[in-house]
Design a protein around this nucleic acid. Structure first.
Lengths: 233, 233
DNA sequence: ACCCTAAGCGGACCGTGGTCCAGTTTTCTT
DNA sequence: AAGAAAACTGGACCACGGTCCGCTTAGGGT
């Protein structure tokens, strides 16, 4: 199966920061030939930067991830950080890249009910729960990495989630506006909302999980299944 | 009817910027006794600042609203702007205040189907449509004013919307998790999402309107009404 | 009318995100 | 192997959001 994905993590080459947004390229997901052949030293510096950023997060939290601090910790000039990642958001998203890919692999090729093999409805339920728990884990980073409205929904990882949900919805409610419905469903899994509900309202994740299940049932016009909490497909 | 509302637009008195978030006060909505008796000169400067900000927006768009620029345009020191509005987000939200109040008044005391008098389901439908169109109008400002995740959902205007939706939902689906459901529904009206759908995907507002109507029908388990587009109740 | 005090004021100051460009290093070509 | 083009580098530089603190002023009490 093919999915629309950007040539991930290769931001504008700096002199041209405002390119009109390259069209997404259809590539087979899996082998990460995403790296457009970085020059040897550049690749080395990239790795050092990511490692440095991760260390800074571990030590001082996301707020400690200053572009200058990262540059210094990686023994690299500040300009290099920006050239590689575009901006702070880009750096933070690169940090999330692995976990993004993992989730993607899980629902695209992993075992049911998340992966193929289970009925679409079950997959959709499992999908939401998986996103929920994964978001809760990486919440700080996800919130800090929240890009400006323009990029928020065009980020490849987000686009992949959307495509997947659209595909499932088409099988479940073929005569609905699946594009729109998918975005609505995904909006209810927004990290900022999860943050609000869990940390500000004190709702336990289980309640959100039940909420997702219920929402899916209502939206698809099916019955909610008996409550079972087999998350983390 | 009572609603939870903050003492609007009176940000921390600067020396104490990190107060632990005052508890919301229950006041009757309507007469804006919100202003805690600003000193005369302060009130005058506040007005001048808002006017200056509005002018800057008209001339250079939201991006032109720099704290320094606003201060200069209002012939006032930079510190004054921050003392009055807390931060840039606060200033921008103050600019939205009037439109917030208007919407609130409409669904709380205006004519049906938005206001009281119509069946809850009709009110809910009208509510979404009203929010949709009002958001589309002020979209730039709404996006720019997007506060950090911590304040995003505790802002009085947002809280008022939520309270209203919860109230309606309790009447329509009394045995659902209305708190959660309300937030889910509101998430689908998020300005960032509206921006994405209309400006990036090119969906017309009418489609979003239909999407809302459909969503409400699915969530409440009722039939969608015949398509009519009487928006701006 | 005067004074006293809290509120308000303003602009110097700081840290951070982001840009620029002159110089360096790598890799391709022949 | 040598030369040229492309890519990368680093740090000086800028703009903006946000803070601080000594000075000014409004306005109530006497």
């Amino acid at each position: 199966m093919l999915y629309a994905v950007f040539m991930s993590s290769a931001p504008p080459p700096f002199p041209k920061p405002q390119e009109p947004l390259e069209p997404p390229e259809l590539i087979e997901v899996g082998p990460a030939l995403s790296e457009p052949c970085l020059r040897a030293d550049a690749a080395r510096n990239r790795a050092r930067l990511l490692e440095a950023a991760a260390r800074l997060i571990a030590e001082h939290g996301v707020a400690g991830v200053t572009m200058e601090a990262v540059a210094a910790a990686a023994r690299v000039g500040k300009g290099t950080v920006f050239r590689r990642f575009g901006d702070r958001t880009g750096l933070l998203m690169a940090l999330l890249d692995h976990s993004d890919k993992q989730l993607q692999a899980d629902f695209m090729g992993g075992p049911p009910p998340l992966g193929p093999g289970a009925p679409p409805l079950d997959r959709l339920r499992a999908f939401g729960v998986a996103v929920l728990y994964r978001s809760a884990e990486r919440l700080d980073l996800l919130l800090a990495a929240q890009p400006d409205p323009d990029r928020r929904f065009s980020h490849p990882a987000v686009a992949a989630l959307r495509t997947h949900v659209v595909m499932l919805l088409r099988q479940i409610v073929p005569d609905g506006d699946c594009e729109l419905l998918a975005r609505t469903l995904l909006a209810s899994l927004d990290p900022a909302l999860i943050h609000h509900l869990t940390r500000q309202c004190g709702m336990p994740l289980e309640r959100l999980e039940a909420g997702w299940t219920d929402l899916v049932a209502r939206v698809t016009g099916t019955d909610a299944p008996a409550a079972d909490s087999t998350h983390r497909g």
